[in-house]
Nucleic acid binder design. Structure first.
Lengths: 337, 337
DNA sequence: GACCATCATGTTAACGCTCACAGCCATAAC
DNA sequence: GTTATGGCTGTGAGCGTTAACATGATGGTC
């Protein structure tokens, strides 16, 4: 990696091109009234001096940095991550850069600190992935003076943009599929209670339950991990609720359930059907391949960033819900065949 | 989200505290020679005015922004992501903030552009995840005037820090485990050829092969995805090389192989053993649970960021190799039992 | 030919901060 | 009583850019 000389400044370029520094600034900012001859001279000087504009100086005087702050939760889940990269990609394609901060714990103070830093840094917009109600509330309470998009299942004031994958719709598709196959007693392995997505999926399951069913006996709570799904499935199997199908709140827990069933000698889908949620890459090759609900996190991230940039350009706030798709593979079939 | 008033400046704080702006600056920068009475007065003024330092102005005059640039490749792989979050976490704990950019394609120009931007932004250090030789070379060719850490399997000049998980060691552990179990003919499902990690794992496998074995017949190339592992395993099974074990270059492809074997009625580990690489979360609950090599990406990220911050403080460059662990589960056993 | 609009360019003043330097007041040393 | 020393504080300049205004040239209109 080669060393730099002292960086050239706008005045250096101006001198080299025989114009004033302001003309250089105009060229850089695509101001219309610059003659093409001058523009060319400036551009030449810029390349020959290897000039690069000082972003700090620009940010100081304009009060904006062309940076977008992205707040994510530091989970190991793959979804939020595809999100992140998709957002960064769209942002960069539109001329913005991404500053990120991950939420280590669910401390509202941490949210406030991060937002403050983003503000200090002069970000032009903020995207926050808010998986819990606590995070949403911390965001709403924070002093934010730039456009903001919340990636959350929670309902937010109309003046704030939000985007999310429609959890209830996805859960209904999963449950509808099982019901069409003939299942009546469907168990549920849910995610952690404070998670808004877990709550939405759980809610849809509860709503779909026949009046006679006992929700308590048909449900086990996990923490999104495969092992927690395994344990949840074992608990469900030990009970006497006798479900013919399981709706797992995510694919990982569905794998755990798959393993538990395999170890109990219960064949999927013949003696038990399973549907997951997420469609992570591995689900193409679980045994059997998993019927699931595809959440397109890349699309979500792109859409969210589009909303943010549009909001930064003055458009009104939007609330986007992306409808997830049912992906039919082999883990769900007619009951007891 | 509440609206801000015009932000207070250092001069406002100085006025409120009855001191000069320079004294305020000193308090903010923890300069020793400020009397405690003055310090307290300034601090009070700061809180009462809700003053926040303008980072752009500070960066303009100091030439550094307390930001670290992180360059990652936009893969859907989970590893790089845990990395990213771990790095950000360490950086923030040490008072730095993270700016990220994802590599969309393997265009060297993109690397150069991103590094230029980081430089323009006045980052104090750069971390780059370089999965291919092309990326490494683009990084080495770039004009970088701040400390840099490369997360790569490639060897880099001594003046540049690097960090990685020791791929050869991991692969040797996997292969050694199979050999100890009694396997002689071990097939390999490799990752994409341009990937440095894939190459290292493949190299270790090649080196461990008996002289009589035919590498061509014992190997199939995948692209890290589960489906590619499935297809690779099918190809291997169709051939006549008769391996008793498969070393998959990552866990996802191992899942694909697991599915292929299951569909061919070949029982794992009784008729075929499989070892993966990564230890992703799902591997606890594959059928059977996967024996694999654990790569601790979180540790890697933390270590890399530590190296960078130490380098920024003037310490010499380091080259860290983290030794991955063999995780024994149930997918590998003695041959044909 | 006088006038006004328009384009192209230059001049000056911020933006909010840190750095280098200068000044002041104590206390200690002779 | 003078001089040195060191702790605390203030003054002024300047970082590189954009914004606002001023200026000079050009061209069309009456």
């Amino acid at each position: 990696m080669k060393a730099h000389h002292a960086a050239a400044t706008m005045t250096d370029v101006a001198q080299a091109a025989g114009v004033s520094h302001q003309t250089v600034s105009r060229v850089l900012n695509n101001h219309p009234s610059v003659s093409s001859a001058t523009r060319r001279a400036v551009l030449d000087a810029i390349t020959s001096l290897d000039y690069r504009r000082n972003l700090a100086a620009r940010a100081l005087v304009t009060g904006s940095s062309h940076v977008i702050g992205i707040l994510v939760s530091s989970t190991s889940q793959s979804g939020p991550v595809s999100n992140l990269l998709a957002m960064e990609s769209v942002a960069r394609a539109r001329g913005y850069w991404a500053s990120i901060a991950g939420l280590r714990d669910n401390d509202p103070q941490e949210v406030t600190d991060i937002i403050s830093h983003f503000t200090d840094q002069g970000v032009d917009g903020i995207v926050a992935v808010a998986q819990t109600q606590a995070t949403v509330e911390a965001m709403l309470a924070a002093h934010v003076n730039v456009p903001t998009v919340l990636l959350t299942a929670a309902t937010v004031p109309a003046e704030i943009s939000s985007a999310d994958i429609d959890q209830a719709s996805g859960a209904r598709k999963a449950l509808g599929h099982l019901r069409e196959l003939g299942h009546v007693t469907i168990a549920h392995i849910s995610g952690p209670e404070t998670d808004l997505h877990a709550a939405a999926r759980h809610g849809a399951w509860l709503a779909s339950l026949p009046a006679t069913a006992d929700p308590e006996a048909l449900m086990a709570v996990g923490d999104w991990s495969a092992m927690s799904g395994y344990r949840a499935a074992c608990r469900l199997l030990a009970g006497s609720s006798g479900p013919t199908a399981i709706f797992a709140a995510n694919d990982r827990m569905a794998y755990g359930a798959l393993r538990a069933l395999s170890e109990h000698g219960i064949r999927v889908p013949y003696e038990m059907s399973i549907v997951g949620f997420d469609d992570i890459e591995e689900s193409t090759c679980s045994i059997p391949p998993l019927t699931t609900i595809r959440q397109d996190h890349t699309q979500l991230g792109s859409t969210a960033m589009q909303s943010l940039i549009d909001a930064m350009r003055g458009e009104p706030a939007r609330c986007v819900k992306i409808d997830p798709d049912l992906i039919v593979r082999n883990s769900a079939g007619a009951p007891n065949h």
